[in-house]
């Protein structure tokens, strides 16, 4: 079966982030990037399904030139080939715009299964996969922990619900699933994998060649640090002093010890 995985590149976790002078995005100078966390689980699920059922794993990533690094890492982990939808670094597409490009890039692929992460760490919209399914006209399910392919033409998946509940869902293929973190153990790229990645196909598609995107229906007008609404009492100084001050407060002010 052919499995496509949409992966997004996001700033490396715990990067110090600052709002850019434009007030519209973060300052990207000197930032390092990595694969969006749930997307790594989506890729892992795809690789395991290929190991079970055979076929091919194609990774798909829309972004500026720098995302090539994240794509190569996915190839090194075992994806067979990749499609990079190259965006101008200044492009300001909304989710529908991105999903329209991803759908256009996937059209000729006719994948049996398309996996995305459930949510991006930067935008956090949590919807690109669902929109993609609608644009491709295929069924979907979200927040998926386990995937079982039956007879090569249908799926039974375990969907996470709130408060520790789960549910199984069945649907025909082709389909889109948005994958939750934690369903599998992530693999590392091997030295061999890294070497092989260099020879794998990486197709670059220009966004402009994929057809028109709809006009943005949401516009990000301003990015800013949240106002502090509640002032926590912060203890500084050396660890020993701070610890003693905290305990004092917990005992005599909060009275919880």
């Amino acid at each position: 079966m052919k499995i496509a995985v949409a992966i997004k590149q996001v700033p490396l976790r715990d990067s110090p982030l600052r709002v850019a002078a434009s007030g519209l995005w973060i300052d990207e100078a000197n930032l390092s990037y990595e694969i969006n966390e749930p997307d790594a689980y989506a890729l892992e699920e795809a690789l395991q399904l290929r190991e079970k059922h055979g076929g091919e794993v194609v990774v798909l990533c829309a972004g500026p030139e720098r995302v090539g690094q994240t794509i190569r890492e996915a190839l090194a982990k075992g994806a067979d080939r990749a499609i990079h939808v190259e965006l101008d670094s200044g492009a300001s597409l909304d989710t529908l715009g991105i999903a329209t490009l991803l759908a256009a890039a996937l059209k000729s692929e006719a994948a049996d299964l398309i996996l995305t992460g459930l949510q991006s760490d930067d935008f956090g919209y949590g919807q690109t996969g669902v929109v993609l399914a609608e644009l491709l006209g295929v069924p979907h399910s979200t927040i998926i922990m386990q995937v079982e392919v039956r007879d090569g033409n249908s799926l039974r998946v375990k969907r996470e619900l709130e408060d520790g509940w789960f549910q199984h869902i069945e649907m025909p293929l082709p389909a889109v699933l948005t994958i939750q973190s934690g369903g599998n153990k992530l693999r590392y790229a091997t030295l061999m994998g890294i070497k092989k990645a260099k020879t794998k196909e990486l197709k670059v598609l220009k966004a402009a060649d994929l057809g028109a995107t709809p006009p943005a229906s949401v516009v990000l007008e301003k990015l800013y640090s949240p106002h502090k609404s509640k002032q926590a009492q912060i203890f500084s100084g050396d660890p020993k002093t701070a610890a003693a001050q905290l305990l004092e407060k917990l005992r005599f002010e909060a009275r919880v010890l």
């Binding site: 909304d94 989710t95 529908l96 999903a99 459930l118 956090g124 919209y125 949590g126 919807q127 669902v130 929109v131 399914a133 609608e134 644009l135 979907h140 399910s141 979200t142 927040i143 996470e160 619900l161 709130e162 709809p214 943005a216 229906s217 949401v218």
Partner: peptide, 21 residues
Amino acid sequence: YQTRDYAPKLATRFGRVLISD
């Protein structure tokens, strides 16, 4: 979780993006 599962699809029918969360 239910909203996350279908509201983006519904919004797409109207050419709109769900402004989520």
